[in-house]
Simulated assay, not measured.
Amino acid sequence: MIEAVMLWNEPNNKSHWNPELDPDWSIYADTVIRAGRAIRSVNPSVKRVLGGMSPIDPHWTNRMRAHGALDEVDVVAVHGFPLDWNLWPIHAWPDKIAEIEAVVPDKEIWATEVGVGSFGAEEVQQFGVEKTAELLIGRVPNVYWYSLFDLPQSWGAETRHREAEGSSYYRHFYMGLIREDGTPKPGLEAYRPFADRMGLMQWFHFHDPRLDDAVRWMSELGVRKLRTGLSWADSFRPDALDWFDRQMEALAPFDTLVTFCFTPEHLGVEAHHTSPAREPQAFADWCQQMVERYAPATATPPRIGVPA
């Protein structure tokens, strides 16, 4: 059910990893090393992906190499939103990829979160889909468009610095190809010709009511590759394994890249999901359990619904 695992999401962005608690990213690197080794011990065929960086930063990538983290991953991932948040034009995508290739010529580079929102005009998103596909399909092995669905207004975006983002915070709610009310935007039809070559990135919240609709839409579009996440913090909720099983079983038709992230409050250096864990090995142990459950190195499929 899992072809690759990403170790955290945007660890060089304070929305997802608190740099005040780990200013040189040495704790994050240790976390990657431990988790990467744990995953490899279960199934060496599962690709290990460094947490998708945002901003795209070769200096941060070199820091990861100096800390030894790149020794325990197979892929280096980048995220980019040039028409919404990044201070570079969409046509610079090949140059941004080349910046990372220059410092990690020994790794695959994947674009695991790319997107253009419809906040200003839906026609801008339509253009963004087409231009992103033109620039990235064939340039890197895997591309994932963020996202299939708009984020519901009542849910709130996962960001530590909402106030600092100002009005751009509201762009978080317009990144989908399908509106909150379930109707498609023009961008969906722009995406359709590329669905078999440009995957989708879609987060699913705990007991997300959109799961079945997502599978239906992706099947109808002909999507082959999906990036999603499993939350370490959610794993401590009641019936968490039942939800994880349901999610992963529903997504079984797709080649799935799963992001493991979000620290349980009681296990963090501080009580926040962006905090480093007090014991990074605890995260590695959980990653190992999830890979054993959903991507075991065996010809026998896992028995969903059976406790590990």
Rank of each mutant, 00 (worst) to 15 (best):
G115E: 11
I137L: 14
V103K: 06
Y146A: 15
W110G: 13
A102T: 04
L151S: 08
W145A: 12
S168P: 05
V124L: 15
Y170K: 02
A157P: 13
E165G: 10
D150I: 02
T132N: 10
G115C: 09
E163R: 10
P141V: 00
V116C: 10
V103C: 13
Q125T: 12
G128Y: 00
V140W: 13
H161N: 06
W145E: 13
E163C: 03
N142G: 05
F149C: 13
P105H: 11
S167F: 04
H161K: 03
G117F: 03
E165H: 08
P152I: 01
T112I: 03
R162A: 14
F119L: 12
T159Y: 00
G117C: 05
R160Q: 09
D106I: 02
P141F: 00
G128P: 08
E134M: 06
V114G: 11
F127V: 09
L148K: 06
F119V: 11
H172L: 00
V129I: 08
S154Y: 02
Q153Y: 02
K107I: 00
S167E: 14
R139Y: 02
V116G: 03
L136N: 00
I109P: 12
S118Q: 07
V140R: 12
H172E: 10
V124T: 15
L151A: 09
S168Y: 01
T112V: 05
S154G: 09
V124R: 08
N142R: 13
P141D: 02
Y169Q: 04
P105L: 12
S147D: 13
